[in-house]
Amino acid sequence: MRFDGGARVALAWLLVLAAPSTALAGPPFLTDDPEPTETGHWEIYGPLVEVEGRGPDYGGATGVEINHGAAPDLQLTVGIPVAFAHDDAGQRWGMGDLEVSAKYRFYHDDAAGLSVAAFPGLTLPTASNGMGNGKVTALLPVWVQKDAGPWSAFGGGGYAINPGPGNRDYWTGGVAVTRQVSSQLLLGGEVDRQGTDSVGGRASTSLGLGGIWQLPAPFRLLASGGPTFVDGDGAAGFHAFVALGLDF
């Protein structure tokens, strides 16, 4: 499929406006899990880069995500992004929308290896240079995880509140399977589905492979990526994420 100049600009802006909902997912996967940061500890991902698009038309964000185990089974998260977009008109940068969320694990059974958590989040209209939604948006998901030895399966999803001209609310969710290959390496794959987030838009399905490589403490490297398929469009796009993690 070929895009004229106007369609390229529209696609690039659509990617930027969609970025906040993606950023609320659990690094490095689009799909989140119900495991909160350990009480009293911090998990920081930064610098991080996440991007999605098709060919030379892409958008995303770079910045930092800060997670804190504020209480037993409670994680507070703040994401501070700098957004970017690229198309035929060139590269554009600006502050992204501030992201705040709270993960609460309300069910945990060690013997069964089962956990369930809610992870509601908001994006606040702090963007500059037209790089954000301009409205408060929200994602209201529930995540479930089952552990069995070195294997973990997790997934779920929820409802995204996405106000603004031409936007619409939508459902989103996914499922992922990971394996702890060694004490240093975790690998996994996922399938993520997002409903139509704009008037006249289309739903999409993303496939991904990802991993976490434990570096000398307290650092780790996280990365994932794969194709994204828009319903009714045979040409695949892409998504990717890479970050340096710091745990203490």
Rank of each mutant, 00 (worst) to 15 (best):
Leu76Trp: 07
Arg202Pro: 01
Gly156Phe: 06
Thr22Trp: 15
Asp87Ile: 00
Gly201Arg: 04
His108Gln: 11
His239Glu: 07
Glu43Gly: 01
Gly210Trp: 14
Ser21Tyr: 11
Asp247Trp: 04
Gly210Tyr: 13
Pro27Gln: 07
Leu186Glu: 13
Val191Thr: 07
Asp88Asn: 11
Val230Cys: 03
Ile80Asn: 06
Gly164Ile: 08
Pro28Leu: 06
Gly245Tyr: 11
Gln75Glu: 15
Asp192Met: 09
Val51Tyr: 11
Thr196Tyr: 05
Ser198Met: 09
Asp87Glu: 08
Ala127Ser: 13
Gly164Asn: 05
Pro27Val: 10
Ile66Asp: 03
Thr39Tyr: 14
Ala118Gly: 13
Trp151Tyr: 14
Thr31Cys: 02
Ala217Leu: 07
Pro47Cys: 01
Leu185Cys: 06
Asn167Pro: 02
Leu209His: 05
Gly208Leu: 11
Gly245Glu: 10
Gln91Cys: 00
Ser206Lys: 09
Val64His: 05
Ala61Ile: 00
Val175Gln: 02
Ser128Lys: 04
Phe3Leu: 15
Gly189Val: 05
Thr39Met: 06
Ser115Trp: 12
Ala112Cys: 01
Asp57Thr: 12
Gln194Arg: 15
Phe84Asn: 02
Pro34Thr: 01
Met1Thr: 13
Asp73Glu: 12
Phe219Val: 03
Thr37Asn: 05
Leu207Trp: 15
Ala127Ile: 02
Ala25Phe: 06
Gln184His: 13
Ala85Met: 12
Asp73Leu: 12
Phe84Arg: 01
Gly201Tyr: 09
Ala23Lys: 00
Phe106Leu: 00
Pro72His: 06
Thr22Asp: 14
Phe154Pro: 12
Gly46Thr: 05
Gly166Met: 03
Ser101Asp: 10
Glu52Val: 03
Asp169Met: 05
Gly130Glu: 02
Val230Thr: 14
Val82Met: 10
Glu190His: 08
Ser182Lys: 02
Val191His: 08
Leu215Arg: 03
Leu139Ala: 13
Leu114Phe: 15
Ser101Cys: 07
Gly113Ser: 08
Lys146Arg: 15
Asp4Val: 02
Ala89Glu: 13
Gly69Asp: 08
Gly53Val: 01
Ser128Leu: 11
Trp42Arg: 03
Gly113Asn: 10
Thr77Val: 11
Arg220Gln: 14
Gly40Trp: 13
Ala138Leu: 01
Ser206Tyr: 06
Gly226Ile: 01
Arg202Val: 06
Phe229Arg: 14
Trp93Phe: 14
Gly155Cys: 08
Met1Trp: 09
Pro227Gln: 04
Gly211Tyr: 12
Val177Gly: 07
Thr77Tyr: 07
Pro34Trp: 11
Val242Cys: 03
Ala83Ile: 01
Ala127Pro: 02
Ala71Asn: 00
Val16Thr: 12
Ser152Leu: 04
Gly225Phe: 10
Pro36Met: 03
Asp233Pro: 03
Arg105His: 02
Ala85Tyr: 06
Gly130Lys: 02
Thr172Asp: 12
Ala7Asp: 14
Arg2Leu: 07
Val49Ile: 11
Val51Met: 10
Gly200Val: 05
